[in-house]
Amino acid sequence: MKMSLIINILSIAFMGQLMAVSPSFSQETYRLKAAITGLSSSSVVIRYSRQGMLINDTIRVHQNQFTHALAMTDGAIATLVLNPTTQLPFWLESPLISITGTLGTTPILQSRGTPENDWLDLYRKTIERPYTLRKQGKSSAEVDAIVLQQDQATRQFIAQHPTTRTAAYLLYWQAVYDTTIFDQIELLLAKLSPQVKASYWAQKTLTRINNVQNRPRVGKKLPAFSLPDATGKTISLTSFAGKYILLDFWGTWCVPCIQGIPELKAIHEKYGSRLAIVSIALERPSDRQKWLKAIDKYDMNWTQTAQFTSAREGVNELYNIHEYPTFLLADPEGILVAKIKYGEVESQLEQLLK
């Protein structure tokens, strides 16, 4: 079931190929001022992406209020995270951004005072909030049906406001949560105004469509990528000519990934002459040392690379990776041979590499 914009947007812990057009970052600092009745937490989080890296700023709250200075972000958007189920995206398009609201069973939050924030607030008021209320007390099947109705209403909103960046932003999240409606998304994308079509979120939507349509499939050549390894050397699929390649998508934060390391060590010892293991870790920008220490601690003496980005950037988005760990086996020509389930790596490799 897909989640609504406030409920879970950008809350996936580590979630795209890097945008072909890099955002231009101004030196201007935006000041956020918030007053939210019922905000009893001692701190809140502002979550955003900058140059592909997911960043969380923790802010102290005093008497239901807080202020925060913020530089430009990817896509000119950040998200206020009050708790796991209450989040508010807002646009950075004014030196002073004001957020007000009231917490409760159904929180009401507003970021207003600029054109795009007003559009985002209109969407929350006319679509997101009413549909959220309709879901309360309903069964899972009933909620699923309401979510589909909300998505249809969201796409109507996008079609009605093609000159707004908010339309492109909403369209991107439609593309994230439902890969079965890309025909509708492409039509909506084509109807955006030229300026909006060239914006960060519209281009990110296009990248999402292209990545999913070209995602790795058994029998198809894997998309090319290059990443620095733990020593700084750039590696790619062509670095392992003549060998099968096992791509291991993992993270130091992933318990099953850590539990599976002994199996990978056994595989490396058994098939080292025929099989190259390439581990691609997904880590927070601040966790590089944690990653390096894990490599040393668990004696992971095969090729180690990492992305210090959100999971909706870089190789993870290019390969449409949403579960950790994920294992992909490619033949010496770079053709995907198999997607291997966690816990079955050694047994499947024994059959595939006989």
Rank of each mutant, 00 (worst) to 15 (best):
I59D: 02
I59K: 03
V61T: 10
V61Q: 03
Q65R: 15
Q65W: 00
T67S: 15
H68K: 12
A69N: 14
A69G: 06
A69I: 02
M72D: 11
T73R: 03
D74K: 07
D74F: 12
G75R: 07
I77E: 05
I77G: 00
T79F: 15
V81E: 06
L82A: 09
L82Y: 06
N83W: 08
P84D: 09
T85Q: 15
T86M: 06
P89R: 11
F90T: 01
F90R: 04
W91Q: 02
L92G: 06
P95F: 11
I97V: 15
I97P: 00
S98A: 04
G101Y: 06
G101W: 03
G101F: 07
T102D: 13
T102A: 14
L103S: 09
T106P: 00
T106D: 14
T106H: 10
L109E: 05
L109A: 10
S111W: 01
R112W: 00
G113R: 02
E116P: 02
N117H: 02
N117K: 04
D118H: 02
L120N: 01
L120I: 05
R124A: 09
K125F: 01
K125S: 11
T126L: 13
T126D: 10
I127L: 14
P130S: 11
P130M: 08
Y131H: 13
T132D: 10
T132H: 01
T132Y: 01
